[in-house]
Amino acid sequence: MNKIKCALIGPGNIGTDLLYKLKRSPVLEPVWMVGIDPASEGLARARDLGLKTTSDGVDGLLPHVKADGIQIAFDATSAYVHAENSRKLNALGVMMIDLTPAAIGPFCVPPVNLKEHVGKREMNVNMVTCGGQATIPMVAAVSRVQPVSYGEIVATVSSRSVGPGTRKNIDEFTRTTASAIERVGGAARGKAIIVINPAEPPLIMRDTIHCLTESAPRAAEIEESVHDMIRQVQAYVPGYRLVNGPVIDLDTHRVSIFMEVAGLGDFLPKYAGNLDIMTAAAARTAEMFAEEILNGSLSLEPVPA
């Protein structure tokens, strides 16, 4: 079967883990890995796995896009360079899946709104944040039952799984996640909290979702909706697990859901479910676009600069 050819930008932990996932995909074929440091371990690893590599950044990839038939690119660099990368690749008709917090394109949380994006032929979609991928499906599971006036999430991640980029701009996490709780999760107002825990052995990512419903929560429907949504996330993140809840408080209209996210352990350790759910969601998103391209219902066009 034909596969859609992809490029990965950023050979760090996220890019490498994503590469492992793409190698298994029935519809995607990773062809290029793009870095900026010729001595990068990530580039060497990608070469060992049979990819073409460049250390000249996206400019090193551009001359090969047409010849190698690249149609989808993943950006796992930083918000600062993403806009430029996206503009250059979109101009050649390559669709961008953005794993940085740049959020130029619309937020994508696969089980909630991926189909909608495919239908709109978006050329750039943003994967929100790790905490957003882990919690927004649950906010949506409640808000599709009844209106949610307030959605709040607490993401607790192992200290070892939080890179320097996130640490330098932790507000970007809270801001972007809170915004996506509203826009994708469907809560009228959103709040996000992140806690970093240094315990050894490292703790597996934990996520708590608190929703306040406008009217008294409809317990049975919420339970069913939550369990159904968990199964949809498990389709691409098998380690997505309900630990406790939903706790439903009829007096305060509070619905609390306690999740744990273990990664697949492809390249990143299993406790880093926060990173795994990002790469898994990005791969899932690309696969859905790829399926549409392969069955002829979607064709990507260059975006004039």
Binding site: V154, T156, I193, N197, P198, T208, H210, V243, N244, F258
Partner: peptide
């Protein structure tokens, strides 16, 4: 379990 400041959510979770 090595809980740190801010993990109040884990109190109800742990009790359950």
């Amino acid at each position: 379990r090595g809980m740190v400041g801010g993990q109040e959510d884990m109190i109800e979770d742990t009790a359950i």
